[in-house]
């Protein structure tokens, strides 16, 4: 029987030499160097993200101790309670909180998108000298702590502030009353906090827009809307995607803004987790279960969204 002729090595063969930065190297070597350089980051993530995440999952199946700590007795009670089954039968409260969190986060994201899109174009179309200034103005709020910024809203929406008086004048609020705590106040705080996260990625994509495509679209009989739809929007899809992720995820998890501006009755999933994690009065295993659900929910929504935008994503 004739011996089978050896097949030629494919280009991706691990030891095919390839030139790398002037030195002769192989893909295998490159991979080793790559893992070595990436090791600190992997270790960091493993130690401070994956490990705590697993711990969180473990706690979610533990029991609350009488003192409000953790007792390592396996139970599914936390998840039962999460979907609404408490000591007094089923209640929709948790469902409402989760639904409200998703709605508020989605609304914040959408409003941020609507505000950020034109703003990004405005900044990108400034002359280079003043463009930097606009970007600084946009990022100045980050120089201040989020708590301080959120408290600033209390003053702005307080009973004596011009905004409140104006609102009272046009009949949007009762005279002499503050505009907080309210959903509107929370939304204002959240949009203010997250807007730059939406503007920045969109701005960087607008800066790179190929304006020739706009002329091509016009040359090919597109209306103004058609030009936007076919020549501008597709060029910013990936930036919108990044912006949505950067806005939606923190918006889902926020508790500080809703705590300060939303009041005690306006509870988001973040607030619920925070109260339940308070040792002594809270229920840490239940909080862990909630936190786990929050992570899962966010991942699912982002996955759904990226599937929606995924087809377009590859094109940009």
């Amino acid at each position: 029987m004739p011996e089978p002729t050896p097949t030629p090595l494919p280009a991706s063969c691990p030891d095919t030499p390839l030139v790398w930065r002037g030195g002769l190297s192989t893909p295998r070597k490159l991979r080793r160097i790559g893992s070595l350089l990436g090791a600190p980051a992997f270790m960091w993530l493993g130690l401070f993200f994956i490990l705590p995440g697993l711990l969180l999952l473990a706690i979610a199946f533990a029991t609350r101790s009488p003192t409000g700590g953790i007792e390592w007795t396996f139970t599914l009670d936390n998840f039962r309670r999460l979907v609404g089954y408490g000591s007094f039968g089923w209640s929709p409260a948790n469902g409402q909180i989760i639904l409200r969190s998703v709605t508020i986060a989605a609304a914040t994201t959408v409003i941020c998108m609507i505000l950020a899109y034109p703003l990004a174009f405005f900044i990108a179309c400034r002359p280079a000298s003043s463009r930097m200034l606009w970007l600084i103005v946009l990022t100045v709020p980050f120089w201040t702590n989020l708590i301080v910024r959120t408290y600033a809203w209390l003053i702005m929406l307080g009973p004596e502030s011009p905004i409140t008086r104006l609102a009272a004048m046009v009949g949007l609020a009762e005279p002499g009353a503050a505009l907080y705590p309210s959903t509107t106040a929370t939304m204002l705080g959240m949009i203010t906090a997250f807007l730059p996260f939406m503007v920045m990625p969109i701005y960087s994509s607008v800066e790179k827009i190929n304006w020739n495509l706009l002329e091509a679209a016009q040359d090919l009989y597109c209306s103004r809307w058609g030009t936007f739809r076919h020549a501008i929007l597709p060029q910013t899809y990936s930036a919108l995607f990044v912006g949505v992720i950067l806005t939606f995820i923190p918006a889902m998890g926020t508790f500080l803004i809703s705590d300060i501006l939303g009041g005690a009755r306006f509870m988001l999933i973040g607030n619920l987790i925070q109260t339940q994690f308070t040792f002594g009065s809270g229920n840490p295993p239940y909080a862990a279960a909630l936190a786990f659900v929050l992570i899962l929910l966010t991942l699912i929504i982002i996955a759904l969204f990226s599937r929606l935008g995924g087809k377009r994503e590859e094109l940009v």
Binding site: N210, N212, L213, E215, A216, A217, D219, H230, A231, P234, Y237, R312, L315, V316
Partner: peptide, 9 residues
């Protein structure tokens, strides 16, 4: 167009 300006998407 000089740059062709084809729609990449």
């Amino acid at each position: 167009f000089q740059s062709y300006a084809l729609f990449p998407h």
